[in-house]
Design a protein around this nucleic acid. Sequence first.
DNA 1: TAATATATGTTGCAAATGCAACATTTTGAG
DNA 2: CTCAAAATGTTGCATTTGCAACATATATTA
Lengths: 216, 216
Amino acid sequence: MQFKEINLFEGISDEDVMRMVSCFGAKIKDFGEGELICDYSDTGEEVGVMIRGCAAMIRTDENGEIAVMELFAEGDIFGEVLAFSNEAGDSVKVIAERDSEVMFIKYDQITKRCERACEHHSRLVANMFGLIAKKTLSLSQRIEILSKKTTREKLLYYFNILSKKYGAEFSLPMSVTRLAAYICADRSAMTRELSRMQADGLIEMNRKRIKLKKVV
Amino acid sequence: MQFKEINLFEGISDEDVMRMVSCFGAKIKDFGEGELICDYSDTGEEVGVMIRGCAAMIRTDENGEIAVMELFAEGDIFGEVLAFSNEAGDSVKVIAERDSEVMFIKYDQITKRCERACEHHSRLVANMFGLIAKKTLSLSQRIEILSKKTTREKLLYYFNILSKKYGAEFSLPMSVTRLAAYICADRSAMTRELSRMQADGLIEMNRKRIKLKKVV
DNA sequence: TAATATATGTTGCAAATGCAACATTTTGAG
DNA sequence: CTCAAAATGTTGCATTTGCAACATATATTA
């Protein structure tokens, strides 16, 4: 295991992580492909850390419609309190997409100063804040995008965010189909708008490769 | 001062709050109406706690357009890391709307275990998690709303959330105009849709008072 | 490799929406 | 109370969008 690559444990050595894990009474479990990692009907006050593999958070509504809410890769954390609202009372589950290893830590163990006063506890708390803040940021970013009126405005706003990160030429970090879902637009309508934007000389596009002509 | 009413300090006595404040080196400042509380151009690693009064987070974009992003009441916390993304590089400021009192605490003081080992430090951290989680929840709730295709679906989803909280009859927690901004719809178009929903027997509505006929 | 599933691209059409312009009501300041 | 400002309600019209039904391209698996 290389815990160093997991953001939650950044700045903490593998040995210290192991020490904290036992101090916290955290559990590490293995899951095969398709196996249920957790179910948010029974609310556990735990945070899950993807040590290895990947998983998907799946929502099933009362009509049986299934939606992938989030994908988790190695190093990602997930938990009931972390970034999803389930006001509709739908079934929300996390399912392993491959063979995976997940660590479960109780929230109150993170917030409490443990009795043995683990050296790196405050670092863990700071990392946790950082991760939640990052998630919060990506949520508010998406709200900014969704608050634009037209598909063109949504796309341009999103492309500008990407261009600030990667420059005027970049590859989409997701498929076109997923992009449509992300900006909550009909896929075909979005493709049509992308064509128009090319015709209007705003972008050049080839598959996932995009060149933003006029950076705002 | 009654710190007990401030969520961040819940479960901590006023005396202990004062003790922690001095231990943290936190500052309490007064602001008059219209005064600048903080500016996110110069990024301070602090969290602000509204002790008294209220304030607004204001964004000004490159075209000089002004938008109220958030309103803060007594007990609310705000901070750079907390729930806003500023990819567009707009000017974001927090302005006092009345005479107000604000406490500023440095993030790392919250995450670090202080040297004098304040008794209630872990309670503070837990409260902070709770507040961020609450904010995260409201953000993802808004995303759920914005992801609905039609104005009617947005409204019904939002009304159902409210009805789970307050029952089938409730008052809007904001003005109709603000509701339109919240669901990112044109105000007049939204009003039109509300009329149609009444005509279709989905709701009864009188000003802010709403009765949801068919709870989903 | 072939066969199948998935992703992408295109278009007509009906429905939903934004926008503008207006009337009316409510609120708040003096 | 009076008056002005803000909020609310209404409607016609042009634009944008979702939807359906396709064709084609790419990826995946047997």
